[in-house]
């Protein structure tokens, strides 16, 4: 198979970027999309040009590192599939394919197709966890959790933090990402003590990082490679509202409290 790839090239965050066309020949239908980029890069290097920078690591759809907008859709045309699991048999021989980075104010471009997603990490650092120190846990079966609750928590926890939801949203909102984390712990008894603070702190962190708000476009759900449903955003909104209506004591608890010895 043969393809024309139109790829976003940008030297660094200060320089302007542009789309550059490349012809790639000798592609087999068994190749993954990233392997086509590998092939193109190998040709570029041999010609003495710098390869196209793109994020990737596990190549089995779980690390969340790959982040390509392919033909205008984050992770490309296959539903519930990361770019690394997308294979060329899903394309037509001779097709022109555009490849762009995630685009959002909170994800500045580092180079070519690589963006800086540390804003998502900072959102989690604001409270996306259960505060429990190593060694202080009771026996794991001391607290039965209904299978339904555990399954719901799992469904939310399946998020791989790739940021496709942000890239697809016209508002560049990280609501689905935040909602998934909030919903995971809201479903579990371990998450209850910090439940309301968590909703407030994560949403505030999301705002601080420059992500937009949710206006129900559902684009996030459509591109989520793990199929995380937008219904979690409703859960998030409920917890957020409840927390906002609570007394100031609840609201003003700082992101985390550490006792000084």
């Amino acid at each position: 198979m043969k393809f024309t790839l139109c790829v976003w090239r940008q030297l660094n965050s200060d320089e302007p970027g542009s789309m550059v066309s490349y012809e790639v020949d000798g592609v087999s239908e068994d190749m993954s999309f990233l392997e086509v980029l590998d092939l193109l890069n190998e040709n570029l290097v041999v010609r003495g040009e710098e390869p196209i920078a793109f994020d990737h690591d596990c190549r089995e759809g779980i690390c969340g590192m790959c982040a390509l907008v392919i033909n205008g859709v984050p992770h490309g045309p296959e539903p519930v599939t990361t770019a690394c699991q997308l294979h060329m048999r899903k394309f037509t021989d001779g097709q022109t394919i555009t490849v762009e980075p995630w685009r959002a104010a909170a994800f500045p471009v580092i180079r070519d197709l690589v963006v800086d997603r540390r804003s998502l990490d900072r959102v989690i650092q604001a409270g996306g966890f259960v505060s429990v120190n190593t060694g202080s846990a009771p026996d794991a079966n001391a607290l039965p959790i209904s299978k339904d609750a555990a399954d719901r928590a799992f469904e939310a926890a399946a998020c791989i933090g790739c940021g496709a939801c942000v890239a697809a949203c016209p508002n560049a909102s990280a609501s689905l990402f935040v909602a998934a984390k909030v919903a995971q712990f809201a479903a579990l008894p371990q998450g209850q003590p910090e439940r309301l603070q968590r909703a407030i702190h994560l949403v505030e962190a999301m705002d601080r990082e420059g992500f937009g708000g949710c206006t129900n476009h559902y684009e996030c759900e459509a591109v989520c490679p793990k199929g995380i449903p937008v219904s979690f955003i409703a859960h998030l909104n409920r917890d957020f509202l409840k927390a906002a209506l609570m007394s100031r004591e609840v609201r003003d608890v700082p992101p985390a409290v550490e006792a000084e010895e």
């Binding site: 966890f129 259960v130 190593t134 202080s136 794991a140 039965p144 299978k147 555990a150 579990l188």
Partner: peptide, 22 residues
């Protein structure tokens, strides 16, 4: 054994049976 306790306390959603146990 302590590892499982620790992870459950963190909210790791391990598979459970219908009685709610691991």
């Amino acid at each position: 054994n302590s590892i499982i306790d620790q992870c459950v306390a963190q909210g790791v959603p391990f598979a459970r049976d219908y009685g709610g146990l691991l």
